[in-house]
Simulated assay, not measured.
Amino acid sequence: MNLQLTGKTALVTGSTAGIGYAAALGLLKEGAKVFINGREEKKLEKVVEQIKKDIPSADVEGVVADFSKVEEVDTLIHQIKELDILINNVGIYGDQPFETTPDEVWMHDFEVNVMSGVRLSRHYIPLMKKKNWGRVVFVSSESAINIPDDMILYGVTKTAILALSRGLAKSLRGTNVTVNSVLPGPTWSAGNLRSMKELSEKKGITVEEAALEFVKEKRPESIIQRFAEPEEVANLIVYLASPLSSATTGAALRVDGGIVNTAF
């Protein structure tokens, strides 16, 4: 299927690995120009170099930005003048016991997970409205609906993203600018791979066995009973970024492996 992305320009935040990286590759393979993003310049350069080897025709550039720092967001905006597609993917998470997670961690995670999307959308959406075409996709999580008791902060930020996405979509009523959110379930991101390796070493089992144990214990409602591959999530993101998704907006679309235990 031709997703009609040739000539479009996209930014994917947090895209040196995991879902963001897979989404960037998907957009590039469909002919879009893509800005990928990371916090470390050397790592970003290596990723861009690898992409150009794997996809010789790729029109890809790296842009460094730590989304917990407003000045670095401002620098990114100055570097990238205009976009057709904004994929707000960057996010952080981890073990966060509610009783011992201090204010500064709450504010830091909120800056990265929520305010990054607020700031970029506030800048680029008016430009999209001016030319009457654009796509904004927020990467939320099934944790926005199934708030994990061991990562309440993470769940709160991901729920906030759903509200932000829906509100922005409604504010763009009657335009050809769409805003949607995607809710992945457990996925083989860099962070999850690291966590599963730690669990496998602790229990003396393989990484695959650790992942299966995690799903059975922490996400027993999963229908697919496994971690998703980043590409499986990215496929939905790339479709939502395309002209073919023109009637889909204001939606929270699940690619969670069936974890959310409702039909609607």
Score class of each variant (00 low, 15 high):
Val207Lys: 06
Leu28Val: 11
Gly174Met: 00
Leu168Pro: 02
Ser165Gly: 12
Glu231Tyr: 04
Ala10Leu: 06
Asp84Ala: 11
Gly258Leu: 04
Glu82Lys: 10
Lys42Phe: 07
Asp66Thr: 02
Leu120Tyr: 01
Glu209Cys: 09
Pro184Lys: 01
Gly257Lys: 03
Ala65Pro: 13
Gln50His: 07
Ser222Asp: 10
Ser222Asn: 10
Asp150Phe: 13
Gly14His: 09
Thr159Val: 08
Glu40Val: 08
Thr9Trp: 00
Glu61Asp: 11
Glu142Lys: 12
Trp188Leu: 15
Ser246Gly: 11
Pro97Cys: 07
Val136Gly: 06
Glu104Ala: 02
Trp133Asn: 05
Lys53Trp: 00
Ser165His: 09
Ser181Glu: 04
Ser222Gly: 08
Ile92Met: 12
Gln79Gly: 00
Ile205Met: 14
Val70His: 10
Phe138His: 12
Leu199Val: 09
Gly94Asp: 02
Lys81Leu: 01
Pro56Gly: 01
Val233Cys: 03
Ala58Arg: 06
Ala251Glu: 13
Ala234Met: 04
Gly20Lys: 08
Gly257Trp: 08
Val34His: 07
Arg173Pro: 00
Gly191Arg: 08
Glu99Thr: 15
Met115Ala: 09
Ile224Trp: 02
Glu229Leu: 14
Lys46Arg: 09
Ala190Arg: 12
Leu86Glu: 12
Phe214Trp: 11
Lys33Ala: 14
Glu142Gln: 15
Leu212His: 12
Ser116Phe: 08
Ala247Thr: 13
Pro243Gln: 00
Ile92Asn: 07
Asn176Ile: 01
Gly250Ser: 08
Asp59Ser: 15
Asn192Ile: 10
Ser189Arg: 02
Trp106Val: 00
Leu127Gly: 00
Glu72Ser: 04
Ile19Ser: 09
Ile259Pro: 02
Ile125Ala: 07
Arg166Met: 05
Asp74Phe: 03
Gly185Arg: 08
Ile85Thr: 05
Gly18Ala: 05
Ile145Tyr: 01
Asn113Phe: 01
Ala252Tyr: 00
Val114Ile: 14
Asn2Pro: 10
Leu183Ala: 02
Val34Ser: 08
Lys216Gln: 15
Ser143Lys: 01
Pro102Arg: 04
Glu61Ala: 15
Arg119Asp: 04
Asp149Leu: 12
Thr178Arg: 14
Trp188Met: 13
Leu3Trp: 11
Pro184Tyr: 05
Met128Gly: 04
Ile259Asn: 07
Arg166Glu: 11
Ala190Thr: 12
Glu72Trp: 08
